[in-house]
Simulated assay, not measured.
Amino acid sequence: MKSLKNSVQLMGRLGKDPEVKTFDNGKSLTTFTLATNEKYTNEKGEKVEDVQWHSIVAFGKVGEIAGKYLKKGSEVAVEGKLVHKVY
C-alpha cells in the first residue's frame, strides 16, 4: 500500500511551457510552474482570489510525457511529494 506520509495532490494550470533537460547519461528532468487558486469572500464581504505558485519537477518518462503534451495554460492534476529547497 502506498504511504500517505508526504503525499500531495494538486490541480491547476501551467504558468509556462515545461522545460525538459536531458543529461549526458540519457536521464531527463522536466520543470514547470503550476498555479492553484482559491476564491472566497472575506469578512468584509469582498470577493478574494488567492493564487499560489508551485514549482514542479518530474523525472524520467513522466517528465518526457509532460514536456511533450503539456503547454502553458494546460489544466493538469499532479501527484507527488513535497520537497523544500532553499537556494
Rank of each mutant, 00 (worst) to 15 (best):
M11P: 00
L4K: 06
E43G: 07
E38D: 03
N25M: 07
L14Q: 08
H84E: 11
D17A: 02
K21D: 10
E19Y: 08
A66H: 07
L70A: 04
E49V: 10
F23V: 11
G15D: 05
K27Q: 15
K39F: 06
K16W: 09
K61F: 07
V57C: 05
K71N: 12
S55H: 04
V83A: 14
K68Y: 09
P18T: 04
A58R: 04
F23K: 06
N42F: 03
N6Y: 07
Q9F: 06
K81S: 14
V20Q: 07
S28K: 03
K44S: 15
S3W: 02
N6I: 00
Y69M: 08
S74P: 01
K71M: 07
K81H: 13
G67H: 02
A58T: 08
T36R: 03
D50P: 00
K5S: 15
N6F: 03
G63Q: 04
M11E: 14
K61I: 10
G12R: 04
T30C: 05
Y40V: 02
G45C: 02
A77L: 12
F32Y: 12
G60Y: 08
K47W: 01
A58L: 09
K85T: 14
E19N: 13
L82S: 10
V20L: 13
V51Y: 00
G80N: 07
G45N: 03
I56E: 06
V20G: 01
V51P: 01
T22L: 07
G15I: 03
N42W: 01
V83C: 03
L14T: 10
L4I: 15
G80I: 08
T36S: 05
A77M: 13
G12H: 00
G60K: 07
N6A: 07
K68W: 10
V78M: 02
T31Q: 13
P18F: 06
P18C: 06
Y87R: 14
K44Y: 11
A35V: 09
D17E: 06
K72Q: 09
T41E: 10
M1V: 14
L14W: 12
H54F: 02
S28H: 01
T36Y: 04
N37Y: 05
K16C: 13
Q9P: 01
V83N: 15
Y40F: 13
E38N: 04
K47F: 00
N42S: 05
G60H: 07
K85N: 14
V86S: 13
P18M: 05
A35R: 06
M11A: 15
G45V: 05
V20W: 02
M11R: 12
L29H: 06
